[in-house]
Design a binder for these strands. Structure first.
Lengths: 130, 130
DNA sequence: ACAATTACGCACCTTTTGGTAACTATGAAA
DNA sequence: TTTCATAGTTACCAAAAGGTGCGTAATTGT
């Protein structure tokens, strides 16, 4: 029998292993927009224009691009109604929904603690006169 | 009395508001390394070299830089023992610890679902012959 | 004939992020 | 006197992220 130390980490996923796919999963949502888009889709399908309005300051390019990445990874489902003018709806897949639930926790964390962060930053900056 | 619509969102934080600090809080951890560093510090203080080993493929520059940002925002505490050779310990502040707990949920999500993501990606790519 | 609609592709550019390699400080030990 | 150890810093460069503006498709209403 081999000890766990010698096993080249095939079974137990580890976010700290650079070659592990779980790292990839984290990097997928590490950008500026993915988390917000997933959160925005929480309450049901949305169209391109509605998402742009909701996200406030995203560019058309980044929205399309990010949605495509999320679709590619199976988090978002793109439904093209094939009408003219175009009507496309984006929604969360089951996996996407499971992610949105943990992101909700993160959103709440941000809304709870941003004040503390702001204060700390100001303290830090004034202390070192930057 | 004014209706809620006209109030310029001073009290209720909203991650979707680009001018809201809670967005800033999210962007702070949206990079490649912040989440991993916070997670790495979960089990107590660590020194520079230990963090480098734990994170595997981070550069010295990014480690220092990211730690400094996290310290600036009050998530990480930097303790310099003022010895020679240098001995500096990084640890989580209370706010940092509260974040690390929600990130743990995210790590677990990644470790649970990365297989589904990999599969979806492969399907997507082969379907469109990219 | 043509204007409007909606999602999006593409070309071009700027900004941000990240990596490499070389250099620094300082006291203890060799 | 030289070496070692540790946690940096800096200058320089490459790559990725992101923004702007313009073009396109195809049907409906004017």
């Amino acid at each position: 029998m081999k000890n766990p130390e010698s096993s080249p980490a095939a079974s137990i996923p580890d976010v700290f292993d650079p070659t592990c796919s779980s790292r990839h999963a984290l990097e997928l949502i590490a950008g500026k927009w993915p988390m917000l888009i997933i959160s925005a889709l929480e309450n049901g399908p949305m169209r391109n224009a509605a998402l742009m309005r909701r996200l406030g300051d995203i560019s058309q390019k980044m929205l399309t691009q990010t949605l495509k990445e999320l679709e590619r990874n199976g988090l978002v489902i793109r439904e093209d109604m094939r009408t003219v003018p175009p009507h496309v709806e984006y929604s969360l897949s089951p996996v996407g929904r499971s992610l949105s639930e943990t992101l909700l926790v993160l959103d709440r964390w941000a809304e709870t603690h941003f004040g503390a962060l702001d204060a700390a930053r100001e303290r830090y900056d004034t202390e070192r006169r930057k």
